[in-house]
Design a protein around this nucleic acid. Sequence first.
DNA 1: CGGAATCCTGTTTGATACTG
DNA 2: CAGTATCAAACAGGATTCCG
Lengths: 127, 127
Amino acid sequence: MPHPITRADDAALSEHTRRALIRDVLERIGDKWSVVVICQLGDTTRRFNELSRMSEPITKRMLSATLQGLERDGLVTRTVYDTKPPRVDYALTARGHSLLEVVRTLAGWAEDNASGILESRTAYDAR
Amino acid sequence: MPHPITRADDAALSEHTRRALIRDVLERIGDKWSVVVICQLGDTTRRFNELSRMSEPITKRMLSATLQGLERDGLVTRTVYDTKPPRVDYALTARGHSLLEVVRTLAGWAEDNASGILESRTAYDAR
DNA sequence: CGGAATCCTGTTTGATACTG
DNA sequence: CAGTATCAAACAGGATTCCG
């Protein structure tokens, strides 16, 4: 008898599901700009154009898309002030801050291993 | 006094350079399969088809490309045995292991925050 | 067994122009 | 100021086929 496939494996995450989850996160922070924006945001709240300048050479289009993705995942808040000219503030949420920590770990690893990696690439490309 | 530019700034990396570096790393581990392969490799050395099966539904083409990228960055070693049929072993290098640690941190964060992120997305998409 | 070569498609991104 | 709309280029990744 065919039974609902949707139910059986929610107790412990299947290996497949875990992967999908990790990939989700990696796709978020693995895109071209999310990490830059998260780092620029850091502890202080920033306005759109402020982030735009800090994150050069990002385009407005991509900054907008990136911020929307981060907001959707509950990593940043977006606050609109109904003034003229318009003003919109962005800031990390608690979840965003916790991600920032992880990203800093990653960044630290990147810095520590940068020269080694570059050497490896040169060697590899030479043969 | 003008001096060789190639040397001056390895003490402190420019902000721009740091970003490029971090993005390099994120592109490596942010692609579709690197993390999967790194995790499957773990502590033991594996053969090509072994990795292929473990990492399903990866294609050979992508496994090959992924492994080459990892090898280029000095994260895995590739050992060819001239037997028949051919046999090729892959294993993490020390650098690869250190990256594995970082990736596990990331994976931990992903698991811890998965349900929250999913909720945020649902809420966001509902408007 | 362990790939490389080719073809083809959806997605991502950048440029540019426009708007409330 | 803070975006959106549209288009085109670039690229990543899958399917398939072939090879030592």
